[in-house]
Design a protein around this nucleic acid. Structure first.
Lengths: 132, 132
DNA sequence: GATAATACCCAGGAATTTGATAGGGATTAA
DNA sequence: TTAATCCCTATCAAATTCCTGGGTATTATC
């Protein structure tokens, strides 16, 4: 059970945006430099975050990316659900399980899923960059 | 972040062993039949669980697999850590992270790791097969 | 209006991981 | 001796992951 690189790296990028919240947009090359990611790869992560309304961007010269809401209003849970395309640890949590009722293990996955989300939703991006 | 098939199927096999705890050993073909897994695949899962001392086996005719401890003394956490080869969600939790101190995100993974283990260690195999 | 800096879109591919199969060997009850 | 069983290890196809590359659209600045 591993988190994908997308999740790990995307969260780092979000931290970078949070550090500079309120200072205008950060360009892709700048964020790539700070996070040691290739521009092309980072671009894909940011496009996912943008699709899910966590960040926004302005195009053209002097354009870049910025958080859509202040860091204290964005949770790590939101970010990871976006990047990981949901945190469902098994497929049957995604709705299409026909024998929830009789399955011995379904309850375990459901409980774990709730705990994971609870934990991650309890951490804001602001706490992350400020350390505690 | 998905649990592997090994984890899901292995837990089902453990449930089967738990249901028949105290009734002697269950043969590989029998467990395979009950869980709808191929014998060869199931064999690999059971070998992992045996290596980690959760189950034991007797060889030869009338042999089979059985739990090494009663179901109430085996947690789902133990089982999944065995099958998944640890529940570390990111590699840096497995000891070899050089910049724990400065990394913004390390704390998130550490906390989540603790929560996941706490949750799964709180569910016994007995609860699972008896429902609640 | 031209230029340069930027975000945006999408195709593809190498490497890794996963899920599973296969064959043969060792052990033991009957 | 035989048949039923667990044990070991190699291999493979499919899926997924991680990343690169090329080209397009937009816009501030000169």
């Amino acid at each position: 059970m591993k988190l994908s690189s997308k999740g790990r790296y995307g969260l780092k990028a979000m931290c970078e945006l949070a550090k500079h919240y309120g200072e205008g947009a950060l360009s892709l090359p700048y964020i790539a430099g700070e996070t040691s990611l290739s521009e092309k790869y980072l671009e894909q992560l940011l496009s996912v975050l943008k699709k899910d309304n966590l960040i926004d961007a302005t195009r053209g010269a002097n354009g870049g990316y910025f958080l859509k809401r202040p860091p204290e209003e964005i949770s790590v849970g939101e970010i990871l659900r976006s990047l990981e395309n949901g945190l469902e640890i098994v497929d049957c949590l995604s709705g299409d399980c026909r024998n929830k009722a009789t399955c011995h293990t379904y309850g375990v996955w459901a409980k774990l899923y709730r705990e994971i989300n609870k934990c991650l939703d309890g951490i804001s991006l602001k706490e992350l960059v400020e350390g505690e």
